[in-house]
Amino acid sequence: MTYKLILNGKTLKGETTTEAVDAATAEKVFKQYANDNGVDGEWTYDDATKTFTVTE
């Protein structure tokens, strides 16, 4: 399945996607991606759209 991440960081905004077997796996990938890019904030997940959002 394809999962999407929306980044609403103070210095980085954008979107990315990943292929993962489940939401938990996608979340690990996205949290590492956000961490690597210096984005740390509040996370939400919408199962209907398979979209994670992180907002600083």
Score class of each variant (00 low, 15 high):
residue 1 M to G: 12
residue 1 M to A: 12
residue 2 T to N: 07
residue 2 T to L: 14
residue 3 Y to N: 01
residue 3 Y to G: 01
residue 3 Y to E: 01
residue 3 Y to F: 14
residue 3 Y to W: 05
residue 4 K to F: 13
residue 4 K to W: 10
residue 5 L to W: 02
residue 5 L to I: 04
residue 5 L to N: 00
residue 5 L to Y: 02
residue 6 I to S: 04
residue 6 I to F: 06
residue 7 L to A: 04
residue 7 L to H: 04
residue 7 L to T: 05
residue 7 L to D: 01
residue 7 L to Q: 02
residue 8 N to Q: 10
residue 8 N to K: 13
residue 8 N to E: 08
residue 9 G to N: 04
residue 9 G to I: 07
residue 9 G to H: 08
residue 9 G to S: 11
residue 10 K to N: 11
residue 10 K to M: 12
residue 11 T to Q: 10
residue 11 T to K: 13
residue 11 T to L: 12
residue 12 L to I: 15
residue 13 K to S: 10
residue 13 K to A: 07
residue 14 G to P: 04
residue 14 G to C: 13
residue 14 G to E: 10
residue 15 E to C: 13
residue 15 E to N: 08
residue 15 E to A: 09
residue 15 E to W: 15
residue 16 T to W: 15
residue 16 T to V: 14
residue 16 T to L: 15
residue 16 T to A: 11
residue 16 T to H: 14
residue 16 T to G: 05
residue 17 T to P: 02
residue 17 T to H: 12
residue 17 T to W: 12
residue 17 T to A: 08
residue 18 T to I: 15
residue 18 T to F: 11
residue 18 T to W: 07
residue 18 T to H: 06
residue 19 E to H: 12
residue 19 E to C: 13
residue 19 E to D: 09
residue 19 E to Y: 15
residue 20 A to F: 04
residue 20 A to C: 07
residue 21 V to F: 13
residue 21 V to D: 11
residue 21 V to M: 13
residue 22 D to C: 05
residue 22 D to G: 04
residue 23 A to G: 05
residue 23 A to N: 06
residue 23 A to M: 13
residue 23 A to Q: 10
residue 24 A to M: 12
residue 24 A to L: 12
residue 24 A to C: 11
residue 24 A to R: 10
residue 24 A to F: 11
residue 25 T to G: 09
residue 25 T to Y: 08
residue 25 T to W: 09
residue 26 A to H: 00
residue 26 A to C: 02
residue 26 A to N: 00
residue 27 E to W: 14
residue 27 E to I: 08
residue 27 E to C: 11
residue 27 E to V: 05
residue 29 V to W: 14
residue 29 V to T: 10
residue 29 V to H: 12
residue 30 F to D: 00
residue 30 F to A: 01
residue 30 F to H: 01
residue 30 F to V: 02
residue 31 K to F: 06
residue 31 K to H: 09
residue 31 K to Q: 10
residue 31 K to S: 04
residue 32 Q to V: 09
residue 33 Y to P: 00
residue 33 Y to E: 02
residue 33 Y to S: 02
residue 33 Y to C: 04
residue 34 A to M: 06
residue 34 A to T: 05
residue 34 A to K: 01
residue 34 A to C: 11
residue 34 A to H: 01
residue 35 N to L: 14
residue 36 D to Y: 09
residue 36 D to V: 10
residue 37 N to G: 04
residue 37 N to A: 15
residue 37 N to P: 01
residue 38 G to Y: 06
residue 39 V to A: 04
residue 39 V to E: 03
residue 39 V to R: 02
residue 40 D to E: 13
residue 40 D to K: 14
residue 41 G to F: 03
residue 41 G to S: 02
residue 42 E to H: 13
residue 42 E to D: 12
residue 42 E to Y: 14
residue 43 W to Y: 02
residue 43 W to D: 00
residue 43 W to H: 01
residue 43 W to S: 00
residue 44 T to V: 11
residue 45 Y to V: 01
residue 45 Y to L: 02
residue 46 D to E: 07
residue 46 D to W: 04
residue 46 D to M: 04
residue 46 D to C: 09
residue 46 D to R: 03
residue 46 D to Y: 04
residue 46 D to G: 02
residue 47 D to K: 10
residue 47 D to N: 09
residue 47 D to G: 09
residue 47 D to E: 15
residue 47 D to P: 14
residue 48 A to V: 13
residue 48 A to F: 12
residue 48 A to K: 12
residue 49 T to G: 05
residue 49 T to E: 07
residue 49 T to W: 04
residue 49 T to K: 06
residue 50 K to A: 06
residue 50 K to W: 06
residue 50 K to E: 03
residue 50 K to C: 05
residue 50 K to N: 09
residue 51 T to P: 00
residue 51 T to C: 06
residue 51 T to K: 03
residue 51 T to N: 02
residue 52 F to Q: 00
residue 52 F to C: 02
residue 52 F to M: 02
residue 52 F to E: 00
residue 53 T to V: 09
residue 53 T to A: 05
residue 53 T to F: 10
residue 53 T to K: 05
residue 54 V to H: 01
residue 54 V to C: 09
residue 54 V to F: 05
residue 54 V to K: 01
residue 55 T to A: 05
residue 56 E to Q: 11
